[in-house]
């Protein structure tokens, strides 16, 4: 006679537990969603890099009409695109400032004092990956904008990766273009 009572009591406790779990799970999901929103809004997923000069690509590429290759000289012929040395800046900038920008004054200081501008690397490929700009730009005609974004509209210095350097992004593009995704073609 006691048996049905027991089972019903058990079922009640189970229901309570289930209800509790449901509420708990709901809370966790809401909290995670909130956290993700905050992370996304603050740009936490992007690695921010500080630059010594707030270099404006918009002024140089958009307004002055300088091509990417004019400064990043080995992008078509070498593995690395290279960050231009001060010598390249000297081609246009001399002792008299071209604009009233405070950032140009910083550059003129570097020109006067000698030494290179300590630019910080934004795009970095790990040592077990072989990535060649020459192959992508000269051979496969990938435009700079595809990975680096519409650089002609960047007012501030480059501080984050437009297309994050991940294997997922590389393989996605390789798949779209029917390029080999064999490990040994990029990894070493």
């Amino acid at each position: 006679m006691n048996i049905p009572e027991r089972t019903s009591a058990r079922a009640d406790s189970r229901l309570e537990v289930r209800e509790g779990m449901r509420i708990g799970a709901g809370l966790v999901i809401v909290m995670m969603g909130g956290a993700l929103c905050i992370l996304h809004a603050s740009g936490c997923r992007e690695r921010k890099v500080e630059q010594p000069i707030d270099y404006s690509h918009k002024t140089h590429v958009g307004t002055a009409g300088i091509a990417c290759v004019d400064c990043h000289q080995s992008v078509e012929s070498g593995i690395r695109a290279t960050i231009p040395p001060l010598e390249t800046c000297k081609g246009c900038h001399s002792d008299t400032p071209l604009t009233e920008s405070p950032e140009e004054k910083k550059l003129l200081n570097y020109l006067a004092n000698g030494g290179e501008i300590p630019w910080n690397k934004v795009y970095q490929v790990p040592d077990h990956v072989y990535f060649s700009h020459r192959r992508h730009v000269s051979r496969s005609k990938v435009t700079c904008q595809e990975c680096h974004g519409d650089i002609a509209s960047f007012v501030n210095a480059v501080s984050f990766q437009f297309l994050p350097v991940t294997m997922e992004n590389c393989m996605k593009c390789h798949k779209e273009r029917n390029v080999t995704n064999d490990c040994l073609s990029c990894h070493r």
Binding site: Y130, S132, R135, S138, R139, L184, C186, R188
Partner: peptide, 16 residues
């Protein structure tokens, strides 16, 4: 690896 890192560079030059 049969020095496959050398192959990557040679392949690229031959391709170009």
């Amino acid at each position: 690896s049969f020095c496959s890192h050398r192959l990557q560079q040679i392949k690229e030059i031959a391709d170009l």
